[in-house]
Amino acid sequence: MQERDFSSLLAFIITAGLPATLLLTVAGLGMGFLIGLALALIRVYAEDEIAVIAQAYENVFRGIPVLVLMLLFLVMTGWPALFSAGLALGLRSGAYQSQIMRGAILSVNENQVTAAYALGMDRMQTARFIVLPQAFRLALPGWSNEYAVVTKDTAWAGAIGVLDMVKSVDYLIFENPILYLPAILAVTIIYFVLTYPITRYAGEKMTKRLSSLGLGGNY
């Protein structure tokens, strides 16, 4: 009987909570990608006065707890909790992805740029056809890490009332408190299943593949 209770709880976690978790992950990463790419390009290519603004953005969003950001956006915009949470995750991930992307752009070998200029490419063409394609590949391990970070941080959204996996446990637990620990464990395992294979794959396989293309880290 307890068996059935747990499986119905698990079903609830997955049907009611998991969608918000996945949605927030995708939204946060996607928005963070656009912001991060723009910030990184600004920091690498723009005048110092503008680059400083991008850097300030990074520092601010890295220096504030994501839950505080979520609360701030919630009270400032009056949007539904899910939107505010997504906005907070996206803006903050932008700060991190900017660092990842900037590091990747800077680690593209200088002689690649020289060769592009020597062919007659202008700055834009060099960035678009040579530097960015290489930087995107170099950024993959960092991105896989950021994917895990965003996935895990969607859990904060429960604190502003988003029905995600962690929050979904609360909903049914009043009926059967003894199931609280197994339910939280189950949620934890689901997170692990979501994050670990991808970071592992990107961490090992991608690094190997990259270095086989001569795109490894310290070359």
């Binding site: 895990a148 895990k152 941080d153 859990a155 904060w156 429960g158 962690v166 609280y180 620990l181 939280i184 464990l185 949620v187 934890t188 997170y191 692990f192 994050t195 670990y196 970071t199």
Partner: peptide
């Protein structure tokens, strides 16, 4: 395992 799971559920597990 720790890096693959959220801090929140880790704390909740210890608490519970």
């Amino acid at each position: 395992v720790i890096r693959g799971t959220p801090l929140i559920t880790q704390v909740l597990i210890i608490y519970a």
